[in-house]
């Protein structure tokens, strides 16, 4: 009881402080600063990337100044808990496990999977509404990473498909190129950066729409913040909603990828 009172008082004090400094509010944002193309330093030392754009966009809307703090990945949540910064904008996926420690805003990037195959084949794997057509998968071999979210999705949606499992995505791309598998399903952003945008990905393209079922792929990437800050969370959510509505997120993603990474 007493503890709760103290907690409540502490929270009240915090809220008071936040309100008190609202005019010249500075939000400290933690990120890796080495995770291209989401948050990284350009050749002239400037921070850039999708996470950086989102952070700046949010800050502009809520009228706060930004201060970026570079933090190594494994210490990101501990550093937030130790109040080294106020927000984590570091391509951090919203997961059950993390939600036990910290809060998240609404997602600003999707967790999605997409199927990749030879562009010339023009597979008709999905209908206009984005639902898989099982018959059109027959005779095609699909490469998946063992026990990945994509493997779970395939098992649930296309149990009849001829799938093989890989331990690394490198091996998956090799076998796609060698013609041992006809299709692979993976994260479209990584696929674009590592394969499709390179010479070896020539002649390959997406053979499916973005598949984003939360049940299989999770909620997505959100802004992390300390628990017990409903007001700040609401301001972040509102700001992100506004960025989504004004197509700003699409604009940020098109700076890097030829497709939006937020639906």
């Amino acid at each position: 009881m007493k503890l709760n009172m103290i907690k409540a008082m502490a929270l009240g004090a915090c809220a008071f402080l936040t309100v008190g400094t609202a005019s010249a509010e500075t939000l400290r944002v933690g990120m890796e600063c080495t995770y291209a193309p989401f948050n990284y330093r350009t050749a002239d030392g400037e921070l850039a990337g999708y996470d950086v754009d989102v952070a700046k966009g949010v800050a502009e809307i809520i009228g706060a100044d930004l201060e970026f703090v570079c933090q190594e990945w494994s210490g990101m949540i501990p550093a937030l808990l130790a109040n080294k910064f106020d927000l984590v904008v570091a391509s951090m996926s919203i997961t059950e496990q993390r939600l036990e420690k910290i809060d998240f805003s609404i997602p600003y990037r999707d967790s999605i999977g997409r199927i990749i195959g030879k562009s010339s084949k023009d597979y008709k794997l999905f209908d206009e509404t984005g639902v898989a057509i099982p018959e059109n998968f027959s005779g095609l071999r699909v490469g998946l990473e063992r026990a990945s979210t994509y493997a779970n999705w395939f098992e649930a949606k296309l149990p009849e498909a001829d799938v093989v499992f890989y331990d690394s995505s490198e091996a998956q791309y090799l076998d796609l190129r060698n013609g041992r598998v006809d299709l692979i399903m993976t994260n479209p952003m990584k696929a674009y950066l590592r394969f499709l945008s390179k010479d070896e990905g020539d002649g390959y393209g997406f053979a499916s729409p973005a598949i984003d079922e939360v049940k299989y792929f999770g909620t997505g990437v959100g802004i992390g913040l300390l628990q017990g800050q409903p007001e700040l969370k609401k301001r972040l959510d509102d700001a992100l909603t506004q960025l989504i509505k004004t197509d700003k997120l699409t604009e940020y993603s098109l700076k890097i990828f030829p497709f939006p990474i937020y639906n």
Binding site: R146, A147, F165
Partner: peptide, 18 residues
């Protein structure tokens, strides 16, 4: 099992990762 074949070890590895 390292080259995608689903022999006993391949099955075991899949079960472990699940």
């Amino acid at each position: 099992s390292t080259i995608t074949l689903v022999d006993m070890t391949g099955i075991a590895r899949t079960i472990v990762s699940q």
